[in-house]
Amino acid sequence: MMLAVTAWLGAMPGFMTPLLLAALGLLLCERAGILNLGVEGVMALGAMVGAAASLGGFGPGQAMGLGALAGLAVSVPFMVAVIVFRAPQIPAGLALAAIALGASAALGRGAAHMPFAGLAVLGWFDELEGVPVIGRMMQQDGMVWLALILAAALGLWLARSRGGLRLRAVGEDPATADASGVDIQLYQLGAVAAGSLLIGLAGAYLSVGGSNIWTEGMVAGRGWIALALVVFAQWSPLRAIFGAALFGGAEALIPRLQAMGVEVPVYLLSMLPYALTIAVLVLMAFSKRARQAEPGFLGRAYIRQDR
């Protein structure tokens, strides 16, 4: 039992990291008032590009960087559509998802089902190896730590910096932000660009950091879970860490339970993260505080005439 818990906790950060990165990316978009339903496709493209770059001889860090850049590149038409031309965000986001999914399938055929060397575990905490439970949990690759640092930094930036204040104002009340001289579109472009990089990175981590192989459809709804995770986190990066740990933990539980011989059919067990996500959304709906955390202008188009 102890062994299983140790193994579970050791595996959890790996499941948690892509969710956290994607959630942080979405959080940035949503704080600027932009709902990005392209997330599932952008992650898929990031995963494919990360794998293809790894197979093409790039190091894991470079491969993930390229995955992130691919995420940004494919999102540019979406950004122009919803920010400059105020296109409705839901269908535009779905279109982005389709384009990115299609691109990952079309461009990635040569890279499918070919294993490669992925991200290695950092050696920093080797001496802790023997410590029960925690020791195994500390054996992670650099991206796990980087994602946590990013979350903390983003949380600090949003809460404390002038830029963060303005970004929050843009998503909350663009008319007031505009009246204060904040360039709404510039902030939105910046936020969605940074967000797309993070979402692409999240996808790249799935292949380069996680499975070390790329297959079509490997994102498997994680983008949608990240979308719900942002609601769960009440648009706060620090809470997103807990949310990602919860959902990642649920995901990590599935192979453990199987290994322990729990008599639940595997596909029904795999529903756990999705069902958990819906349950959490329902719980959040009861919290007034959570409802108020949603950026007031999320999903709507602002033009100055409305001021």
Binding site: L165, R168, A169, E172, D173, A175, T176, S180, G296
Partner: peptide, 14 residues
């Protein structure tokens, strides 16, 4: 013209 979820101080900074 105040951002409602912001504190007064945040509004002034904005």
């Amino acid at each position: 013209k105040l951002v409602q979820p912001f504190t007064g101080r945040e509004n002034l900074h904005l």
